[in-house]
């Protein structure tokens, strides 16, 4: 028990150090975004700190560049497709994993996780090669399906963990009241699963929009998604245009964050 002896000086120094690092880390998380926001209003055509002057010119250019707008729309489509597919495939799978009365429920849960454990870049290469072998060339659909397979595990896991914490008595009560399994699923289980499905959707949607590792190998030549377009833009543009794109994203992220905290609550996202 001597390790538990109270020693206030080391306590103060140690805690001071820990809290100091914690605050540094928290600043580190947001400072880069704030600096990018500041740069995005600079009047000069090159990136330099501190900025001189204020202009909205770069934000205007973001929406005038047709390939950028197109890539945003492409990514939006991918994000929505991935989310819908993940809900349609993932929710029933989670149900089978938790409620299933067959041998191999554990094996099923593990199997669903495997594509997510494999590095995205490896999955991307594999899907590209397999597609080439059967004559399916990269396209927005191949990209959507590949990302769905990559991120499906997150939806399954989120719904699964919620399902495991549901009180079985609720469904039993429904069964005792002579509800068919479908009725009890629709009126009891589903509404209780809604927060988990929404939280999972946030992740799958963001992944659909943001994924680069899978997308870079599977996207169509003509419909480039936003991350691929951005990667090229960052490498070959020296104006604050990219900062303005970042600014748009940061604003959208804040809106999304507020929406999430008002609807499902931040605690439910991270579970």
């Amino acid at each position: 028990m001597k390790a538990l002896k109270r020693s206030s000086l080391t306590d103060i120094i140690g805690l001071g150090l820990i809290f100091g690092v914690a605050i540094f880390s928290l600043i580190l998380l947001v400072a880069p975004s704030i600096i990018v926001l500041i740069i995005s209003f600079d009047t000069r055509a090159y990136v330099s700190f501190p900025p001189e002057g204020f202009t909205l010119r770069w934000y205007g250019e973001v929406f005038q560049k047709s390939e950028l707008v197109e890539s945003m729309l492409n990514s939006l489509q991918v994000g929505l497709t991935v989310t819908v597919l993940c809900i349609l495939l993932g929710v029933p799978t989670a149900l089978a994993c938790v409620r299933g009365r067959f041998r191999g429920t554990t094996a099923l849960s593990v199997f669903v996780l495997v594509p997510h454990m494999v590095p995205g870049i490896v999955l991307g290469v594999a899907v590209l090669f397999a597609g080439a072998l059967v004559g399916v060339s990269p396209s927005i659909w191949l990209q959507s399906v590949a990302i769905t397979v990559f991120i499906l595990a997150v939806m399954v896991r989120t719904v699964q963990s919620r399902l495991m914490r549901l009180d079985p008595a609720l469904e039993e009560a429904a069964a005792n009241l002579r509800a068919t399994p479908f009725q009890s699923l629709r009126t009891v289980t589903f509404p209780l699963l809604m927060p988990a499905i929404l939280a999972g959707s946030v992740f799958t949607f963001v992944e659909g929009i943001d994924n680069l590792s899978v997308a870079i190998f599977t996207h169509g030549f003509r419909d480039r998604p936003l991350p691929v377009e951005l990667l090229a833009l960052v490498q070959y543009t020296s104006t604050p245009l990219v900062a303005a794109v970042s600014g748009v994203q940061i604003v959208l992220a804040i809106v999304a964050l507020i929406a999430v905290s008002l609807t499902i609550g931040l605690d439910n996202v991270n579970d």
């Binding site: 947001v30 990136v47 700190f49 951005l230």
Partner: peptide, 26 residues
């Protein structure tokens, strides 16, 4: 929670770009 989740909602490329701005020659 807000400070941790917010960066994850923006693209990894955007967050990398920030470091170009921070660490670059100017």
């Amino acid at each position: 929670l807000i400070l941790t989740i917010a960066p994850l909602l923006t693209s990894g490329i955007v967050r990398t770009y920030a470091w170009l701005v921070i660490l670059g020659g100017r």
